[in-house]
């Protein structure tokens, strides 16, 4: 009896003193990471992919200044210095009202266009407690063409100068290096050049980036025009480039067959054909200012 009790006591004691679990794995079991929601950030380096935008928005009180430049077509040869003699520019500002809504304005010498837009992050890609696979950003934009008409005698209404853009950016950061984006877009034009032209044009954009090093990224963007008159007469926009990031700057250099730098211009009005060499060199310089302090 005594012996039995004694072993019992020993076993009991042993059980509690000899129980030495690894503290780190114990920590995992007590406080699992599922209690936190981690929002994926840095899907793209900036608010702009190449010609189009990305699902990223300016953070609260951040001002993003971008200068975009497109040179002429390289197939113009030495007379035009491979397109460098001509240039189309756009400069724009984007400001974050909060971390999910931003406002933007821009001016381009292409048709003397003014543009303005609002971008709203509807969902954010996240892991952990609340997990969601994609970031969806909604853009509503408007452009105003201020260039004089060739024929000044005709009195067109002011509304004929307006263009409307409705676009969704659906993006996912698949790995630390690879992010892809799908962007369906509808562009409405109050006035078009001919009776046959579509007033409303739909397109689907695909784009992505691949991080080669921490600060050097390859980017690509393609907008596919949905079948119709516009798709028959114009070309799909394709742009390929690289991005270099230094602190608050993002410098993008690329080649594209589009001249315009706003949705209204590069999606339904791209004339250049890649195979014929109607491609131009372009760059975007994006500078970020934090107005928090």
């Amino acid at each position: 009896m005594k012996k039995i009790l004694f072993t019992f006591v020993l076993l009991f004691g042993f059980h509690f003193t000899g129980f030495n679990q690894d503290l780190l794995s114990m920590l995992d079991s007590i406080q699992s990471t599922d209690k936190e929601t981690f929002y994926t950030d840095g899907t793209f380096k900036s608010v702009r992919l190449i010609n189009g935008y990305t699902s990223e928005t300016a953070a609260k009180n951040e001002l993003i200044f971008s200068i975009s430049h497109r040179f002429g077509d390289v197939n113009q040869g030495i007379y035009d210095f491979f397109g460098l003699d001509q240039s189309t520019i756009r400069f724009g500002f984007e400001y974050g009202l909060n971390d999910r809504i931003d406002l933007g304005i821009g001016r381009s010498n292409y048709e003397k266009l003014y543009d303005g837009f609002i971008k709203v992050k509807l969902t954010r890609q996240s892991t952990g407690k609340k997990s969601f696979p994609v970031t969806i950003t909604w853009l509503e934009g408007m452009s105003y063409k201020s260039i004089d008409y060739v024929n000044n005698d005709v009195d067109y209404p002011t509304t004929a100068r307006f263009y409307y853009i409705h676009e969704l950016f659906i993006s996912r950061k698949f790995t630390d290096k690879l992010s892809l984006q799908l962007s369906p877009v509808i562009i409405h034009r109050n006035m078009v050049e001919t009776r046959e032209d579509q007033n409303t044009v739909g397109a689907i954009g695909v784009g992505g980036r691949y991080r080669i090093t921490n600060r050097f990224t390859a980017v690509g963007e393609y907008y596919y025009l949905l079948p119709g008159n516009t798709a028959d007469n114009y070309n799909n926009s394709l742009a390929l480039g690289v991005e270099i990031e230094t602190g608050g700057h993002v410098f993008q250099i690329h080649v594209t067959n589009s001249t315009g730098m706003t949705e209204k211009a590069f999606i339904p009005e791209t004339n250049g054909e890649w195979l014929k060499g109607d491609i131009g060199i372009g760059f975007n310089i994006i500078r970020l200012f934090s107005l928090n302090k």
């Binding site: 780190l24 920590l27 990471t33 936190e36 981690f38 950030d41 840095g42 953070a59 609260k60 951040e62 971390d99 630390d176 921490n214 602190g247 608050g248 970020l288 934090s290 928090n292 302090k293």
Partner: peptide, 21 residues
């Protein structure tokens, strides 16, 4: 231990992204 992604503050959101990325 502390999860690095939970750090907040910084001088801008971009800085936080750079910190993590």
């Amino acid at each position: 231990r502390v999860p690095m992604k939970t750090f907040e503050g910084f001088n801008s959101a971009l800085q936080q992204t750079h910190f993590n990325e």
